[in-house]
Design a protein around this nucleic acid. Structure first.
Lengths: 341, 341
DNA sequence: TTGTAAGCGTTATCAT
DNA sequence: ATGATAACGCTTACAA
């Protein structure tokens, strides 16, 4: 039961030097004799010395916490991000604290302020959709809080922003549908107040346009990223007089709903209906047929974001680094086939 | 840009009292004149004073971090736990830091030690399966680390342990199958080195026994909690000369695999095969037929565990509170029917 | 009930 | 290259 951790003082005594010298060794200051360094390191090793982070925090007037702020219902994505951040933080003295927010709660902004004011994390990682919230950004600015936004497209100004290029990715996905011979392609869009939903819709429209296909309003149905809304959207689309032969759904949950709607109508998949989703949630591979979908490099994005937060040690203001845009991949599985009718 | 937070000193000056008095007000010390308290609170309000947690941590020689240590691949569960913990921590000054571990990595124990030694969190929440690891518990003991174990059954001694009663829950689930008329019921078990897997198997066996049904070895197939292993197990079971009419799968992923195997064989569900899963992962409701499954009160369990960690302020040793066992619920959906053959 | 002094474990600053 | 001293913002212990 190691109750009393040795302090820097103990090490100093053991090595026959001053606290300051030990501190210098710990912090890799250059102006130290090799001989002294050796002595100190030996003493540290012998005592099992570990610097006290709270003391460091107090003296340096900053802590070593990176906060992940999110309001996402997509558990897999949140966890992937946590993992990516932790990968970036490995070997540093930083720890990751999480702060889920209840998007939609009227107190969300106050909750966030409360959290930031108390913990004063060194840096904040904002996941979509909170990262799109102007008031949140404003709050971070007001509190002098270093932050990084993650999302589906670079934010205005581009700075402090890491993003996947959802527009481009969806464009590619829909191109794939067009390439398979589809002409009547529907979109199950996400809720319009999400940037991700708007970007994906833009990609959808761009692809149709590039293919010289008409943009039919009835071929676009808005869902809310839930399975149920996908099911409803699928019903709407498939019960039309002239239903689509292919559907791009803005996330996998909705794609699963569409698939279910098709199955309920006795459609043979993918012959009677091709479907592409977005996110590559674990289940996408389990569905039948396995879902062709878009996978974002979540882990790499989170890693980069955390890295940016931790490295850009000095400036709290906008100058920190350029924007970074990541490419997604279309994962080809079995849910796309040439139109069958 | 509020760069300089007011300190306790500033408040003291503003209120015309000493730092100590302010500290007493902040910490709700009883021996303070109402008048003084008012003055101080007014000053605090005016200045927007917020106690500096790192300074408190240094002076009190303890911090305000609760660590969640896990090595789970079940994202939804991890997130539910995070949410439950945060609910319990709301209104306190505690923050939640997460530390995923790579179960199976040879350095896992070292990683954990490294983390605990550096951060020295006030308390640690151990999720299964790390919570079942004796070496982990030993390490926490050695480091004098307050901890709480969450799992599928109470740990030996029962103390510092919060658990769902998986054995009982599975027994109920299998009873449900028996009640529907099934006599030939198979188990797709989890990996034997997980306590959860063993408990669920025990519940399965208890139910058969209670129903006077024979325990046939060929009706038990071990998977590894993955969809793929469920698919394989389903194949094994359904290709037997006398296949089961019902399957209990130890988690939803494997249940989905079994379902898929059934579908591949052209079986009509649930008429030809009833299936029950465990976990109630989001997808359980999306499958077709919607999966009847067991739901644990994850959120409540996490809440209780965090509560126990935070309240039991004093003792670091085993005396802290009794064990707590939570009941699960069988969620009835569409994947169970009387045997049809 | 309130205040004073010392200390928590570290680093910054300025000497030497 | 190393050391002495004074912070950092708070609490404990003791005095008044």
């Amino acid at each position: 039961m190691s109750v009393n951790q040795p302090t820097i003082q103990d090490v100093a005594r053991a090595a026959g030097v001053s606290k300051m010298t030990v501190s210098r060794v710990v912090n890799c200051s250059p102006r130290i004799t090799d001989e002294t360094r050796r002595k100190v390191q030996e003493a540290m090793g012998g005592l099992g010395y570990i610097p006290n982070p709270q003391a460091r925090a107090l003296a340096l007037r900053r802590n070593f916490l990176i906060a992940l702020v999110h309001a996402s219902r997509n558990a897999q994505t949140v966890l992937d991000i946590q993992q990516g951040v932790l990968d970036a933080l490995a070997g540093t003295e930083f720890a990751l604290v999480v702060r889920p927010l209840d998007r939609g709660s009227p107190t969300m902004l106050d909750d966030l302020r409360h959290f930031l004011e108390r913990q004063r994390p060194f840096g904040v990682l904002l996941m979509a959709p909170v990262s799109e919230n102007g008031q949140v950004i404003e709050l971070c600015g007001e509190l002098g809080c270093r932050y990084m936004r993650m999302g589906s497209a670079l934010q205005t100004g581009g700075t402090r922003s890491i993003a996947s290029d959802d527009r481009e990715a969806v464009r590619g996905a829909v191109d794939h549908l067009v390439g398979a011979g589809h002409r009547r392609i529907a979109l199950v869009a996400g809720p319009g107040d999400y940037l991700s939903a708007r970007e994906r819709q833009a990609g959808f429209e761009a692809a149709l346009q590039a293919a010289g296909l008409p943009l039919l309003p009835e071929m676009i149905v808005e869902g809310d990223y839930s399975y149920a809304s996908g099911l409803a959207a699928g019903a709407t689309l498939l019960d039309m007089a002239e239903p689509p032969t292919a559907v791009f759904a803005s996330n996998d949950d909705m794609a699963a709903g569409v698939m279910q709607a098709a199955r309920q109508r006795g459609l043979e998949l993918p012959a009677a209906l091709s479907i592409i989703g977005f996110d590559d949630m674990g289940v996408a591979a389990y569905m039948w047929p396995p879902l062709t979908t878009v996978r974002r490099p979540i882990n790499a994005m989170a890693h980069a974001a955390a890295d940016r937060l931790v490295r850009g040690t000095d400036e709290v203001d906008g100058t920190t680094g350029d924007a970074e845009l990541f490419r997604s991949t279309l994962i080809l599985r079995g849910s796309v086939a040439p139109p069958g009718r």
